[in-house]
Design a protein around this nucleic acid. Structure first.
Lengths: 225, 225
DNA sequence: CGCGCCATTGACACGAGTCAAGACGCGTGG
DNA sequence: CCACGCGTCTTGACTCGTGTCAATGGCGCG
């Protein structure tokens, strides 16, 4: 649900060998550290990014500086292309959750590829359309569900991002989880407390990493169909 | 803010005369009445629509059947193309707010145009990207503002849809306004009551049509920059 | 005239935010 | 090695906004 649908595989699959070569030649790979901002609201966009290693949170800052996280990016995900499509400033910010490796694609290159490759265009149209649908689902969820249901929905949505075989460990901070769920740290903690008592989740270490214990109960508690 | 950015003008401007002719030949114009559903959630998409006359509300149904309206369409707006792009079912529903005239564009035609016209593709990409940004703004608003602020934001966002010269008359039902603001009818009515006392708005007829009286106060009350 | 839909108002309960305090782990420096 | 400070997590007490339920009022229509 929170997974960006535009990713490396999708992007590359539309390109000709020639274009792939062009991409390698004209994009740059950078390493950045946890906590660093890749871009932020009001910044001017010079290109977009492909996440090669690490994880990133995408959020929009609302009134009083409160953040609303709307997407967690994992390796292979593309992000930051909205403003280069419509030549605006960034509507959101991107901050790294882990030390990461990024491939920067300059907007001139991006556009050249779009103009020369109709398949790529249609592919991106589909992807963007998917992202829209997913955001719409999120909006409805935030607007209508209780905090408890929202937290459960968020945890459920995070599973694909943090799955290791059969197990799921979510190492996000309480603040980040609150910003995803549209609530505050204190309320989030109380909900997590209840979920622990109900054996839906448990915390595995001193840092409070969450482990999903009972997927069925989680879905029921989140009113997820 | 709620205005779909994909409209007739934008769409047509990318087409060649030849393609315009094709569009006229293969699309059909239909008249429908207020209250009718153009399409609904779970329905399969065979095409998309151009609104020629009238107004339409686009909403997604959440838990317990509660509706979340995310867009009001006015003449010239295009809608219903998300599922034909990604070959899904409709993620939302469209209901007419007034007697309307619609132009139906079959998905086969839509795709033929996309494939043959790269400019059209890029144009739609930009448009969709704009829609995404606008939805993101809405989500953040709904998640963070109080009901009072949300109602003011919604009223403010509706102005371009219902402007007649210098004046603005919003004839939406209380339920629709509540579904736009992410609240319930009763709470919405109370907020409107307060706004009336503060001379921000007034009601002009027995049906409760709202007239915007003080745009400055409205923006301040809605925390709109 | 009476029925029904919609808008409005009141009383009430409860979810969720705010404020404040404490617990815990971690790194730094003496 | 321990003490201290800092940041994050956790808990408690309190308040208030907002949803729920119920009743009333107004207007249009058959």
């Amino acid at each position: 649900m929170f997974r960006p649908k535009i990713n490396e595989e999708l992007f590359l699959s539309s390109l000709t060998p020639q274009e792939k070569q062009l991409l390698t030649a004209e994009s740059t790979v950078v390493k950045m550290k946890k906590g660093q901002l890749v871009f932020s609201e009001d910044g001017i966009a010079f290109g977009c990014y492909l996440l090669l290693e690490g994880r990133v949170k995408l959020y929009k800052t609302g009134v009083l500086g409160k953040k609303q996280i709307f997407q967690i990016g994992t390796p292979g995900d593309m992000f930051g292309f909205h403003p280069i499509l419509n030549e605006h400033k960034y509507p959101d910010s991107a901050e790294l959750l882990e030390d990461s490796t990024l491939q920067f694609i300059p907007s001139t290159l991006f556009f050249r590829l779009l103009k020369s490759n109709n398949d790529l265009c249609i592919c991106l149209l589909r992807a963007l359309s998917n992202e829209f649908e997913s955001l719409l689902g999120q909006e409805t969820m935030l607007a209508q569900k209780t905090v408890r249901e929202r937290v459960c929905s968020v945890l459920h949505g995070l599973i694909p991002h943090y799955q290791e075989g059969e197990e799921v460990f979510i190492p996000l901070s309480r603040n980040d989880l609150a910003d995803l769920s549209g609530t505050v740290k204190e309320t989030l903690v109380r909900v997590l407390h209840d979920l622990k008592e109900e054996n839906v989740i448990c915390t595995t270490d001193s840092k409070g990493t969450i482990r999903i214990m009972d997927l069925g109960k989680l879905k029921r508690a989140g009113e997820i169909d």
